[in-house]
Design a protein around this nucleic acid. Structure first.
Length: 673
RNA sequence: GCCACUGUAGCUUAGCUGGUUGAGCAGCUGAUUCGUAAUCAGCAGGUCGGGGGUUCAAAUCCCCCCGGUGGCUCCA
């Protein structure tokens, strides 16, 4: 996605009784904000106001443009397929879609639809808004049950709402939209998908058409080019070329097998994180891959994720499950011994391989496998230790991202609770009558199903103090590291607030890596405690944290972003060594021995092919260095080295090996030569 | 699971409107001993994803199944 210019703000004074459009000279402005609400340019203001014009290049402007493009799509589809019933068509982060109840269509139909959209666009149809009352709305859309559903849900009796029309096409919509169809000129339909009404598999299936639109042809082209470029860098293609992993759909669907090359990359990443864990007091543990169902029932995973777990029953009737998460295993270790407040925090880490039964259509490559390994960690904390521990974990994140993905934009999201819906969260309550504190529970949405155990009153007040304190500590940990972050209200898990870390690659794709989640629930459901300074049992707070996230996904990110040309410390082929002829095989073997004794990944190619051919054919394996030795090198005890960018230098063998060893040990991204 | 696209040798691929598959690379054998993106020659490798049907004849047309890929959260 191209950069969005957020400073394209223009404010005009609109006098009472006038249309906003009268003050707009350029067709780069497509809508306006007045007193915080969105308006069409055709709107007449009843009293004089400042209107903030929305530029088509702004984030808001793009959404409006794409939403209008979705309407254009619906118009074209209903013209070509009169039986198609439009449901809904919003803008998405990088385009738009529209859902229709209709016969399945194919890609040929898509180009027909796109052609029709262009025709309609060039007709410069005015996009007009009308206000209708509920009765009129229901009458207008009487043949479309989906629109009727939406009207019933969104328009209260006796009130009115808006419809937008362009030519013959009318849609129930709250807008705003661009002024006329010709504003939508740079667009493309991308794909067809099946979806169900309201996303519910039990309801009828619908055809979803995806597309995207941009303010100008150039940005559209760039977007399409980036998509194609990203496809070329698909990790599955690169992985096959470099011989990193194998998939066998018959024997192990969705379960990757790593070759020695792939295993090398994994192990390098794991070694790196293992050291970082040690430096930061995360003690490595090792837990089994399967547990009895009883544990999963206690943890709550069974109730929530039963359908996504690999479950099986043994001959004696005992039920087991492969672990979908590592936390209960770590809890089992924690439980085994008493803990004083002085020993806290207790921090366990594990490269924990988990198994999740993803639905058949959802698995694919390393990005959506059915087994993956998390650089998992669970800290058992006293309530006052959150800030310190989060701060240290943020340091680990900054350090590891700097080493692996130097210079990539990183963003931090802090997810908070929505205090208007306390019933969505695990909360402590206070009895308004007798001030008794009720242990954390999750109230159900409507019922007054909880009563005070002391006086029986149902008049309970949510006590946010634990959440507030935890959230403040997360926030101040971020602030203490000078980290910019965004807050998202209502995005917290029911059991606690969290911080998510995303990185953005060279193609503008955002990837989630680290997560830090506080958990007030699991320590409670397992009855965990530590002995506090008053010799009383106190429940610890758990921190679930992963820095890489899944190692599989990290490998995907590294392969796709480096195009397979990994930093040398991660490369399974660090040196590819060629003697110019058999006569120099001995000299090359000596060098090979020296490299191997330093642990450098090296292949010596003594086959009878020409140097040119060997270089040509090794390219898909992406060696860090291609080294050639012959008469010159042997006479001077040197080596000729060609790097990933194909620049070449001849230097002393000792110097090469020393600098290369340093490059690998220091995990440098840039090459030494 | 649902929809679209797709499936010819290990990889990349030719095969038009039906006449039982053609190549390049990789592999193997031999020659060549060579200075940075393919040395030469030969050999071998395919139930055209699987099954059924139409037809004198199917990789090609029809039906069913199985893989792979994209999508199935963003609500007028």
């Amino acid at each position: 996605m191209p950069e969005i210019n957020k400073d394209n703000k223009k404010i005009v004074k609109v006098e009472s009784g006038h249309r906003i459009s009268e003050y707009v000279k350029s067709n780069e402005y497509i809508a306006a904000i007045v007193d915080g609400t969105l308006h069409d340019l055709s709107d007449v203001l009843e009293s004089g106001r400042d209107a903030v014009l929305i530029h088509v290049d702004s984030e808001e402007g793009m959404r409006i443009l794409r939403h209008s493009a979705a309407h254009l799509l619906a118009q074209a589809v209903t013209e070509i397929f009169p039986d198609a019933l439009p449901n809904a068509g919003p803008a998405t982060d990088d385009g738009f879609y529209y859902d229709f109840r209709m016969q399945p269509i194919g890609m040929e139909d898509l180009s027909k639809v796109e052609e029709r959209m262009r025709e309609i666009s060039s007709k410069k149809l005015k996009i007009e808004k009308r206000e209708l009352n509920k009765r009129e709305l229901l009458e207008l859309f009487k043949n479309n049950k989906y629109k009727i559903d939406r009207i019933m849900e969104n328009v209260k009796d006796g009130t009115s709402s808006t419809v937008y029309s362009q030519g013959e096409y009318v849609d129930f919509c709250r807008g705003p939209h661009v002024p006329e169809t010709s504003y939508i000129k740079a667009f493309k339909l991308l794909s067809i998908a099946s979806t169900n009404y309201r996303g519910d598999v039990k309801l009828e299936s619908m055809v979803r058409i995806y597309g995207t639109a941009f303010p100008d042809e150039k940005s559209l082209k760039l977007y399409i080019k980036n998509r194609e470029e990203a496809a070329k860098r698909d990790h599955r293609k690169i992985g096959a070329e470099m011989d990193l992993f194998v998939f066998n759909p018959d024997r192990a669907p969705g379960l990757p097998l790593y070759t020695s090359n792939g295993a090398f990359i994994r192990n390098q990443l794991i070694d790196f994180m293992r050291n970082l864990n040690r430096e930061n007091g995360w003690m490595e543990v090792c837990t089994p891959h399967l547990f009895r169902d009883t544990m999963w029932k206690q943890s709550g995973h069974y109730a929530k994720y039963k359908d996504d777990m690999f479950l099986f029953t043994l001959a004696d009737g005992d039920e087991y499950a492969l672990k979908p998460m590592n936390c209960p295993g770590h809890i089992t270790i924690f439980e085994n011994s008493p803990h004083s407040y002085r020993d806290m925090p207790v921090k366990m880490s594990e490269f924990g391989t988990v198994y999740r039964y993803e639905k058949s259509g959802e698995v694919g490559g390393l990005s959506r496998p059915r087994t993956f390994t998390i650089d998992d960690g669970h800290a058992f904390l006293r309530p006052d230790q959150i800030k310190e521990e989060i701060g240290l974990t943020l340091d680990m994140i900054m350090k590891s991202m700097g080493i692996m993905l130097s210079g990539w934009p990183i963003s931090f999201d802090l997810s908070l609770m929505d205090k208007n819906h306390p019933e969505s969260y695990l909360l402590q309550y206070k009895c308004r009558k007798c001030t008794h504190i009720i242990e954390p529970v999750r109230k159900s949405a409507n019922a007054s199903d909880i009563q005070c155990p002391e006086c029986g009153s149902v008049d309970l007040e949510p006590d946010f103090s634990v959440w507030d304190s935890a959230t403040d500590q997360l926030r101040s940990a971020l602030v203490s590291r000078n980290i910019a972050f965004k807050e998202f209200e209502g995005e917290a898990a029911f059991y606690g607030p969290k911080i998510d870390v995303h990185v953005k690659d060279a193609f503008g794709r955002s990837w989630q890596l680290s997560t830090l989640q506080l958990d007030f629930n699991m320590p409670r459901s397992f009855g965990l405690y530590f002995i506090n300074s008053e010799s009383k049992h106190e429940t610890p707070i758990m921190l679930h944290r992963a820095i890489f996230g899944s190692i599989e996904r990290l490998i995907v990110i590294l392969l796709e972003s480096y195009f397979g040309k990994l930093p040398t410390w991660l490369s399974p082929l660090q040196v590819y060594l060629i003697p110019v002829s058999e006569a120099y095989a001995d000299y090359a073997s000596e060098i090979e021995k020296m490299l191997k004794s330093r642990g450098i990944m090296c292949i010596l190619d003594l086959s009878s092919e020409t140097v040119g051919k060997k270089i040509k054919l090794i390219r898909t394996k992406r060696p860090s260095y291609i080294c050639v030795v012959g008469e010159n090198e042997r006479n001077n005890n040197t080596i000729t080295v060609r790097n990933r960018k194909d620049s070449q230098v001849t230097l002393a063998v000792d110097e090469f090996i020393n600098k290369l060893t340093k490059e690998i040990n220091e995990r440098r991204i840039e090459q030494s030569f």
